[in-house]
Design a protein around this nucleic acid. Structure first.
Length: 419
DNA sequence: TCTGGGGTCCTAGGACCC
DNA sequence: TCTGGGGTCCTAGGACCC
């Protein structure tokens, strides 16, 4: 038995936990730079605010309709997510944290004799009591069916956010209800293709031949089909280590100078290195990309990326920044208005198994230096220790005009309650 | 003026080997 | 007319997810 548990409107709900006065009010949470909507409360959905609505186009509407807007407060959401996952992990022997607001739970047959309604309700009660967040629980014999059960739990209010696909009748009923385009693993491209073939519901998809699915949608499509048929194909996959780590940002204003981009790329590389050290990995290659604003078609567009292979595996911010800037210098073209850039580190390997190169290696002193930098930054706040090539005057600022406090991760910003 | 960020997995095709 | 067969490794790009 699998369960897929997700937090309802996660970011918007996190904001509401610390603003109980907003109960029943519409809430939207914005992406970095206050760019566009990335989470909506039920009330905001009811007002037909679409996902990814750009703030500048919707600001007036929000004012007129009393929609409360928040800048994305990712330290808060990350911390709340950890709390929820810790609570839910106690309910099953195996788990897979699938995203910041979703977790798969798994029980082998001999442990799956419980009443799903009862267990799902227990999960909801405990998470609500301990974190203030509402969740939905879907049970099923496979991951894909648990996903659909979760969707049903959320869609029909009379179910109290818990639903189980635990019989063949329920499986067929669910598949005949579920639009193919909304099935987990069916994206825009495949949905279009399938609809052209007359495939409208998940059920229609399961009636196709394996041969057709394999040919048109590769093994991923075939696995999904089997999972929907109730044959467990997708397994619990508890990956702790990331295989790539990325830091990418859009800028508030356009950059035209190489020096400005060098500073950004350096900061991104340093941040990647810090994440590498957190999971005790090194990287052996670093990708750098820059591009202009693709929404602005009146200016010439430019987009380029480059992969720099490192001569040795490392997680030193100094080294990674150095190679990233070398890459940037190769792809930078003057005369363009740059809007976005990023650094992605690839080929991650455990630091404990670092392979030394024959001729050139990372400066061994960097290991202890980086440890000290991490300790100082953890204690005194992010970015207290920086490279000289990073933004010293704090010129670079993200637009965050509606930022809530770090209620759960910074003691200075903890809530004050007057009784 | 203003439009996010961070991931995974798979496949095709090229370059190479014997 | 006819032009082998069987592999590996790497990378870019596509499709998908939240």
């Amino acid at each position: 038995m699998f369960a897929l548990v997700d937090c309802n409107n996660f970011y918007a709900s996190c904001e509401r936990v610390f603003r109980p006065d907003l109960a029943g009010k519409p809430i939207c949470v914005l992406s970095n730079n206050d760019g566009c909507v990335i989470s909506r409360s039920d009330e905001a959905r009811a007002l037909k605010v679409p996902m990814a609505a750009p703030l500048f186009k919707w600001e007036a509407f929000f004012r007129e309709n009393g929609v409360h807007v928040f800048s994305g407060n990712f330290p808060l959401y990350g911390d709340m997510s950890n709390r929820v996952m810790t609570i839910l992990g106690d309910f099953s022997p195996e788990m897979e944290v699938y995203s910041i607001d979703e977790i798969f739970l798994y029980w082998p047959d001999e442990e799956a004799g419980f009443d799903t309604q009862e267990l799902g309700t227990a999960m909801r009660t405990k998470v609500m009591q301990w974190t203030g967040l509402p969740i939905s629980v879907g049970f099923g014999p496979t991951k894909a069916l648990a996903k659909i059960a979760n969707r049903i739990a959320r869609r029909f209010p009379q179910l109290d956010n818990v639903y189980a696909i635990d019989s063949e009748e329920k499986r067929l009923k669910a598949l005949k209800w579920m639009p193919i385009a909304e099935v987990w693993g069916i994206g825009r491209k495949h949905a279009k293709r399938l609809q052209r073939e007359g495939i409208v519901k998940a059920y229609d998809f399961t009636q196709l031949t394996d041969y057709w699915v394999r040919k048109n949608m590769a093994v991923i499509g075939l696995r999904l089909k089997h999972d929907l048929e109730g044959k467990p194909t997708l397994q619990i996959d508890d990956i702790q280590q990331k295989r790539n780590i990325a830091i990418t940002r859009s800028f508030d204003v356009n950059y035209t100078e190489l020096e400005q981009l060098k500073e950004r790329i350096t900061s991104f590389a340093v941040a990647c290195a810090e994440k590498l050290r957190q999971q005790q990995s090194d990287c052996s290659s670093v990708m750098v990309f820059i591009h202009t604003n693709w929404y602005n078609d009146s200016r010439p567009q430019y987009s380029q990326s480059i992969v720099v292979r490192l001569p040795f595996p490392t997680n030193s911010g100094i080294e990674i920044a150095k190679f990233a800037v070398q890459g940037l210098e190769q792809i930078f073209q003057p005369g363009y208005f740059y809007k976005k850039a990023g650094v992605i580190v690839h080929e991650l390997t455990p630091t404990s198994q670092r392979q030394m190169a024959l001729f050139e290696n990372s400066d061994p002193r960097h290991d202890s230096l980086m440890r000290s930098v991490d300790r100082i930054n953890r204690h005194f706040g992010q970015q207290k220790v920086r490279l000289a090539s990073q933004d010293q005057k704090r010129i670079w600022k993200m637009r965050q005009e509606h930022l809530s406090k770090r209620y759960t991760t910074n003691i200075a910003e903890i809530m004050t309650i007057k009784a």
